[in-house]
Simulated scan of single mutants.
Amino acid sequence: MGRLQGKRAIITGAGSGIGRATARLFAAEGASVLVVDRNAEGVEATAAEINAKGGKAIAVAADAGSEADVTAFIDKAVKAFGGLDVLYANAGISGGWTPLLEQTAEMWQEILRINLIGPFLAIKHAAPIMTKQGSGSIICTASVAGLRANAGGSPYSASKAGVISLVQTSANAFYGTGVRVNAVCPGLIETGMTAPIFEGARARGNEGKIGQLNPLKRGGQPEEIAAVVAFLASDEASYVNGQAVPVDGGLSSTLPFAQQRF
């Protein structure tokens, strides 16, 4: 029996990276998963891999920042699985490192639409289902960029700080319902979004410097985020609510400092 045995889950941004790793782990732990991504090919591949290994997955190509799409894929999951126990609002975009004074309102609007309005819509439409059954776990992907400066561009960082606030306010909005809302805050994780950083460092022979600012002195892997998400989704985290959990090798625990030799 896996720790998510019988759980019915939705994971957005599941066509690659953290979302795909989480979908794999959820299925391995016994959950039925509806996987969502704008990249139809990627999300179909995620579902096919899970089903080939004996798991249960349904793929949906959708835009996590579109209310019509969100209501449609939540309805699909409920009809297919008979309910909804877990929703992981993971889909997001980075927006790159455009200098602040060169950013446009349109850039901000699109990043906020997907990264912040998307999780809001997921919570808005999943929570009524969960409150009726008296239980449920909603997890959102925030970021260390939402905790401190210089881990992402301005609009991305603002969107992730908004996700942290959204999680806190939502957890309190569902006071007494049994619905928990938490966030995970990844540090530097090797995904498609961060591929230029990792590939550039390897090309320059500087791979050893990746993650040098955190105490573990390395970057992370999607599976390391998935493990924390699976915990938050499980009954083992039944008393964890309204939290933003950094998974960053210790980066957010420190202020800048000069390395000491011991």
Rank of each mutant, 00 (worst) to 15 (best):
T169H: 12
L147Y: 10
V240R: 01
P119L: 05
T169V: 15
E67W: 11
V184R: 01
I50A: 07
A14E: 06
N214A: 07
N51L: 06
A158M: 09
S238H: 08
G15P: 07
A237F: 05
V184L: 09
D85P: 06
L255I: 15
A151N: 13
V229M: 01
I58H: 05
G42C: 11
G2C: 00
V70C: 08
S16R: 15
A183H: 03
E224F: 12
F231D: 00
T12M: 08
P128T: 05
M1K: 02
L116I: 09
A62C: 10
K217G: 06
F257K: 07
I18P: 06
N115T: 12
Q109L: 13
D69M: 04
L216R: 14
A40G: 12
R261Y: 05
G249N: 13
A68V: 12
G187C: 14
M193Q: 09
L100A: 13
A9I: 04
F26G: 01
A91W: 08
R20F: 04
N241V: 10
S137L: 05
G42K: 06
N115K: 07
A195S: 15
V163N: 02
A72E: 05
S238N: 12
I129F: 10
S32N: 01
E207T: 11
G205S: 10
S234E: 03
G219W: 03
E110R: 15
F174R: 00
Y239L: 15
P246V: 01
V144G: 04
I114Y: 07
V86M: 05
Y156R: 03
W108I: 07
G55C: 09
V33P: 03
I139Y: 10
F198Y: 15
F73L: 07
A52C: 04
E41P: 01
G219C: 11
A171I: 07
S32E: 02
K79Y: 01
I74K: 11
G200H: 12
T177D: 06
A126C: 12
A64Q: 06
F174M: 05
A48I: 02
R8Q: 13
I138Y: 03
G54P: 05
A203L: 10
A64E: 13
S253V: 06
G152R: 07
F174I: 00
E190Q: 13
K53H: 15
R24Q: 00
I129R: 14
N90V: 00
L112K: 02
R113D: 14
I189M: 10
A142I: 14
A201T: 07
R202H: 13
R218D: 11
I50R: 00
E110K: 12
E67Y: 14
S238Y: 03
V78D: 04
G250C: 05
G200W: 08
G220A: 11
N241T: 10
K79P: 00
I117P: 02
L112Q: 09
T194L: 13
K217I: 04
F262I: 08
A161F: 02
I189G: 08
V245M: 10
D69L: 06
C140R: 01
A68D: 14
S238T: 11
M130R: 09
K79W: 01
E223D: 15
L216Y: 15
